[in-house]
């Protein structure tokens, strides 16, 4: 599989990636590689992960998301997790996974409107 299942779109300094319904292990790993390459190439300042379509996040997927955020930070970009469904949010809260250090937004639009600095 060479073309990633998760498309990454560039909007100026921002990279937006739309995660699919199912976060399976291979797709997520491939995506992490591809994303780090793109951040390096584009010197993006912000990465917005659109998770509007994601129906389940278990502790494995949560760990991957946190690792992706940490990796992006090392490359100089901040990560915003956008559009988490309320059912997923309740479940993660009950799992005890608050995703500390990961920025969040209601939607991609909100994430794009909320740019760094006053």
């Amino acid at each position: 599989m060479t073309s990633p299942d998760i498309p990454i779109i560039r909007l100026g300094e921002v990279l937006v990636a739309g995660l699919s319904r199912e976060l399976d292990d291979k797709t997520v790993m491939l995506f992490a590689d591809e994303l780090s390459r793109r951040i390096g190439d584009t010197r993006a300042s912000t990465v917005v992960l659109d998770i509007t379509k994601v129906e389940v996040i278990d502790s494995f997927a949560a760990r991957m998301l946190m690792e992706i955020a940490a990796m992006a930070r090392l490359l100089g970009a901040r990560v915003v997790l956008a559009g988490m469904r309320y059912s997923v949010a309740i479940t993660l809260a009950e799992l005890g996974l608050a995703l500390p250090g990961v920025e969040t937004a209601l939607s991609v639009e909100h994430a794009l409107n909320r740019r760094a600095g006053p």
Partner: peptide
């Protein structure tokens, strides 16, 4: 507390 956590996860 969980409601607060979930709210933040949603971006609110």
């Amino acid at each position: 507390m969980q409601t607060v956590t979930a709210t933040r996860l949603m971006g609110a």
